[in-house]
Amino acid sequence: MKEFKDKVAVVTGGANGIGHALAQEAIKRGMKVVIGDIDRNGLERIEKEFKEMDADFMVSYIDVTEYSDMEKLAKNTLDRYGRVDILFNNAGVVVPGPIWDLPLNEINYIMYSNLFSIVYGLKVFIPIMERQDTDCHIVNTASVAGLLSSPGMPTYHMTKFGNVGLSEAVNFQLQERGSKIKISVFCPGFIQTDLHHCDERRPEKFKIDWNDPYYQSDEYKEGLKRAHYVITTGMPIDSIGMSVFQAIEDEQFYILTHPQYLPVIEWRTKNILEGKNPDISFFK
């Protein structure tokens, strides 16, 4: 896709962070934009900001962990604009901590937010795009954590590996049927977003039970500190929207942002091919 003016972009998790940057870039390129998010205050900020930009946009309060809400987002988009050209399947959360200590509620929270939401977006929007029979593009926001492993956040790696694998397989399926839909998987490293504040936007069904001993543990508190540090010291977000749109123009499948992680991805791949075991000393 080379031309964007007057086309329609849908962005989940569009009120904050990467989603916000993607929505801004879409508007700069003359697109009509639909922002879906669970953050009501964020949506209000977006409305004010984008009205000042004289943008053609709409916001939709949705919970991406609910399939019916993804259907609602699609319906709202079609009712308003009659088409969808780009889907930024972007919403996501982070949950640190050892898998054996995490409450099951936390595991469900990240699975539904980071993986099921991607599934829901593909399931709802691909048929719409297929019926249009026009050039379309889907960008699934994963993470470099979907291309390498580390000891830090196993549930995060789990969902992001799932996102990458799903994106690859669906991309093959679309190629096989000669579809006009192209897919990219966005695998950034740490970027200066507010991902570490995602708990402020939790759906009620995943509400934290502060009586659970895990939330009084040093592991939980240290995990919050680590998340805060790596995100606030990450890459500035300014160029992210432009980079992703360039990848769409180039029909680039893997979109990476941090070259310093390439040796880690290579190390993991070589271990697999050479039959070597993962070794924690690599990270030390």
Rank of each mutant, 00 (worst) to 15 (best):
L115F: 15
L115C: 08
F116K: 13
F116Y: 12
F116H: 10
F116S: 14
S117I: 06
I118N: 12
I118P: 07
V119S: 05
V119T: 13
V119M: 15
V119P: 08
Y120L: 04
G121R: 02
G121D: 09
L122M: 15
L122Y: 15
L122T: 13
L122V: 13
K123E: 10
V124F: 00
V124M: 01
V124N: 01
V124S: 04
V124E: 02
I126H: 01
P127S: 05
P127Y: 00
I128Q: 02
I128R: 01
M129E: 01
E130M: 00
R131V: 01
R131I: 00
R131N: 15
Q132T: 05
Q132R: 04
D133E: 12
T134F: 02
T134W: 01
D135T: 13
H137I: 02
H137T: 02
H137N: 03
I138R: 09
V139K: 04
N140L: 02
N140F: 03
N140R: 06
N140Y: 05
T141A: 03
T141D: 05
T141V: 14
T141C: 07
A142I: 08
A142S: 15
A142V: 07
S143E: 05
S143L: 03
S143N: 05
V144S: 12
A145L: 09
A145P: 15
A145Y: 10
G146Q: 13
G146S: 05
G146M: 10
L147T: 05
L148M: 12
S149R: 02
S149P: 03
S149T: 09
S149D: 12
S149N: 11
S150G: 14
S150V: 10
P151T: 10
G152A: 14
G152Q: 07
G152N: 10
M153V: 11
M153S: 14
P154G: 14
T155E: 12
